[in-house]
Design a protein around this nucleic acid. Structure first.
Length: 466
RNA sequence: GUCCCCAUCGUCUAGAGGCCUAGGACGUUGCCCUUUCACGGCAGCAACGCGGGUUCGAAUCCCGCUGGGGACGCCA
């Protein structure tokens, strides 16, 4: 049997980080088994679904480099088929019309709650004749759920999950306005799309039982289920916007790399021995449902950031330049010309090992684009003594041959000057660093001087000396 | 309230009865490397929620408690 999974988000907002993880797990599972991952937009809630959200989902998945197979299915387009199945269930006597009004149901629930009973529909129209229907009430169609016994399902992550059928009430299949509800649509679509494995958040665990009953009533093959635990915030509560339930594009804007986010999300709830840094190739090779944990994990920005630093250091210089430039132009409104771009490119090797996010990288790159104002520490370095040293450097560097202007030769030269003046290397280089970058912290000064070239280096040093 | 699920360092986790004086990673502390800062290296601190069983032996199995989470819509 070839594996077919689906990622089925509802387009009511951005692509939430938890959904992104669900998508990732589905994708890895499909790739691992050489199967397909289909995309289904669950847009049956017309009031809340938006086209912007649909776009956000596509964009988010694209940014994460999680591809899907075939044309996405829009659930609402399949409404007629869902209705057809509901009618079929009705004809088979496995569903019935219910004439309760929303108000009636509300009082039913309130009474149940008052008696400390679970708030559920009591099935009052289950065996009543439609002849008794009150006038002017559009009925809903309810599913005749099994009332006795237990339903036992073997979930690939949760193990054997059992629930008493008394816990399940008769869910609504078709609303009073004739539109299908979620549980019906999902089952029909999963069946029609040939889904073999349903991998989704464990907030759907109870839906599994309802959906299972519909599969059985229709005599359809039931797919395998895998309910993965939800992601929690740092405080252990459900992930909220406050702590990270942001759209993936927010992570992009915070300067994270997609491969870092994927790696982080993968390790949140899944493990492969002691492996932490896992390439996509390895992830596909290793991913399985057996090693998905059952307990919810807390989202940890610090660890994500660390992982991002790793992937930043590993990233290709050219790619990084391409990522950094738009940030600079947008955030700092500094146009990046060809010269500046070239500096960035040549300086990237030194730059990238000192940043954990793209934002940091951008911030640290700025001095290559244009001279930066001295920060407090740089001003301190350039005190009387520092300026003296800088003056020496200026005159000595002026007569340093341009064709020897390389990192290694510059280092040798400046080490010589320091020795001759009985200065520590730190004393000798810090004024240069401050003058060149405006900061006390930066990549190697020799590297910077080399990248900037003799003219630009001296130009900046002289600007400080004036 | 009812039902379901979960429980190892601060966090993510390894661990499927003896390999555990519980391993790795992030974070943290100290040291080394070093032109600054990073990177890297080394070392340290740090956990099996509690109580009962089962067993020669339990982090691992069973029960209870406690704590956390999720679900109970004409939302998905």
């Amino acid at each position: 049997m070839s594996v077919i999974v689906r990622f089925a988000p509802s387009p009511t907002g951005y692509l939430h980080i938890g959904s992104a993880r669900t998508a990732l797990f589905n994708w890895l599972f499909a790739r691992h088994y050489g199967g397909k991952m289909l995309l289904r937009i669950e847009d049956t809630d017309r009031a809340r679904s938006t086209q912007e959200a649909v776009e956000a989902i596509y964009k988010g998945l694209e940014w994460l480099e999680i591809g899907w197979d075939e044309t996405p299915v829009h659930q609402f387009d399949r409404k007629d088929r869902h209705i057809e199945v509901a009618k079929d269930l009705l004809a088979k006597g496995m569903a019935y019309y219910c004439y309760c009004t929303p108000e009636e149901l509300e009082t039913m629930r309130e009474e149940a709650r008052a008696k400390k009973l679970p708030p559920r529909y009591d099935g009052r129209w289950r065996d009543r004749s439609p002849q008794e229907a009150p006038e002017g009430v559009n009925p809903v169609i309810r599913f005749k759920a099994p009332q006795t016994g237990d339903t036992v399902i073997h979930d690939l992550v949760q193990g054997e999950v059992r629930v008493s059928n008394q816990q399940l009430d008769d869910m609504i299949l078709l609303r009073a306005d004739g539109t299908p509800t979620f549980n019906l649509s999902v089952v029909v679509d999963d069946h029609d799309m040939g889904i073999t494995h349903i991998i989704r958040g464990d907030d759907h665990l109870t839906n599994m039982f309802r959906q299972f009953s519909i599969f059985k009533a229709m005599e359809w093959d039931v797919p395998y289920y895998a309910h993965i635990p939800l992601i929690h915030g740092p405080d252990g509560a459900k992930l909220s916007k406050r702590h990270g339930a942001l759209g993936v594009e927010a992570y992009r804007d915070m300067g994270f790399l997609p491969e870092a986010l994927r790696n982080y999300l993968l390790r949140l709830g899944w493990s492969h021995g002691d492996d932490e840094v896992i390439s996509t190739k390895e992830a596909i090779q290793w991913f399985d449902l057996d090693h998905v944990g059952k307990s919810p994990a807390r989202f940890d920005f610090v660890k994500l950031t660390n992982l991002n630093g790793h992937y930043l250091r590993e990233a290709d210089d050219n790619r990084l330049v391409n990522l950094v430039v738009p940030f600079i132009e947008k955030k700092y409104e500094i146009p990046v010309n060809a010269d500046a771009r070239n500096f960035l490119h040549r300086g990237m090797a030194g730059l990238k090992q000192r940043a954990k996010t793209l934002l940091e990288l951008v911030e640290n790159s700025l001095f290559y684009i244009a001279p930066q104002p001295l920060n407090e520490a740089a001003q301190k370095i350039l005190n009387e003594e520092g300026l003296q040293i800088l003056k020496v450097m200026e005159s000595r560097l002026s007569c340093f041959p341009e064709d020897s202007w390389t990192e290694a030769k510059l280092e040798e030269y400046i080490r010589g000057i320091a020795e001759e003046r009985e200065l520590t290397l730190t004393k000798a280089t810090q004024p240069l660093r401050a003058a060149l970058t405006g900061k006390n912290v930066s990549p190697s000064v020799f590297d910077i001087m080399y990248v900037l070239g003799k003219d630009k280096t001296l130009e900046r040093v002289r600007a400080i000396l004036q």
